[in-house]
């Protein structure tokens, strides 16, 4: 029972991070119809910069700020180099390859600069030794903090997108960017802002997930990208609420299967979930089916 509750807690905690990563993916998908295959590496950069700066004696707050700004800046670069030049090319082949390339380049730069070994991630939120007791099980305070912060950000973003003028602009661009431009919405700025915020979210998610896992290495983003994508697909591409539900579901499933069986089995479960959802209900639990445009 204790073990079950611990697995549940860690599942909810990583699941909330998947939702956060998924939200970042969704944000740029809404505005440009581009899925950033390099997002995983941006998570890594956020965590890596934080870890390296703190290790060199920088104050935590300053380190996190620099890491987040770096992540946001990288997304702007990705928009300029990997997304915008290929927007006019027909099909998605161009941007899939170029955003993946951006991710691999970041991974290469990180390995070159910091080495390929895993770096220990410092305690940014509480200490890994802090626990609270719940139904007889000890649960890490870090798990709880990560869960609360992630869910809070997702909910706030959802509210922001639904209520604010910028939120309306994002949704208008998502619906039809040419029409949005005709209505006087500064499409270009909305797109750039969406990439910037997506970068910030990726940075935060990278730091949070490293806090739970304890280490960061140049290659760690790819799995997270895929799991976040699975969460988004399960919840429904384009639905922030959906990615939260999908993320939590996937996180819990992954930890329970991983805990009771094996971590490799957990990955296979995630993959089967992805194939299953795409085959049976491609729009996910809360998404709308895509309309055909003639």
């Amino acid at each position: 029972m204790d073990f079950f509750i611990q697995m549940l807690a860690s599942g909810l905690s990583v699941g909330a991070v998947y939702a956060l990563v998924g939200l970042g993916l969704n944000l740029t998908f809404w505005t440009t119809r581009v899925l950033n295959f390099g997002q995983g590496a941006v998570l890594m950069v956020g965590a890596m910069v934080t870890a390296v700066l703190i290790a060199s004696g920088t104050h935590v707050i300053f380190a996190v700020a620099v890491a987040l700004l770096t992540a946001a800046f990288i997304l702007i670069l990705i928009e300029a180099l990997a997304v915008r030049p290929l927007a006019k090319a027909t099909g998605s082949m161009g941007w899939i390859v170029s955003t993946l390339g951006a991710g691999i380049l970041l991974q290469g730069l990180a390995s070159w600069r910091f080495g390929t070994q895993a770096v220990a991630f410092p305690d940014v939120l509480f200490s890994s030794a802090d626990t609270v007791q719940f139904l007889g099980a000890y649960i890490s305070v870090q798990y709880i903090a990560v869960f609360v912060i992630s869910v809070l950000i997702v909910v706030l973003m959802e509210l922001f997108l639904r209520r604010s003028t910028w939120g309306y602009a994002v949704r208008a661009v998502a619906h039809d960017n040419e029409f949005a431009a005709l209505l006087g919405i500064p499409v270009r700025r909305v797109v750039l802002a969406s990439f910037m915020v997506s970068g910030l979210l990726a940075g935060v998610a990278g730091i949070l997930v490293s806090q739970v896992s304890g280490t960061v290495d140049p290659g760690f983003g790819m799995h997270l990208l895929i799991l976040a994508f699975v969460a988004t697909v399960v919840g429904g591409m384009g639905s922030a609420f959906g990615s939260l539900v999908g993320g939590l579901l996937l996180g819990v499933l992954e930890k329970l299967v991983g805990g009771y069986w094996s971590p490799a089995a957990a990955e296979i479960v995630a993959f089967i979930l992805l194939v299953g959802v795409l085959t049976i209900r491609p729009q996910g639990l809360f998404g709308k089916p895509e309309a055909v445009k003639v």
Partner: peptide, 10 residues
Amino acid sequence: YIVYGLVLLL
């Protein structure tokens, strides 16, 4: 990695 990344990117 850097070379492959650049190739795919550009």
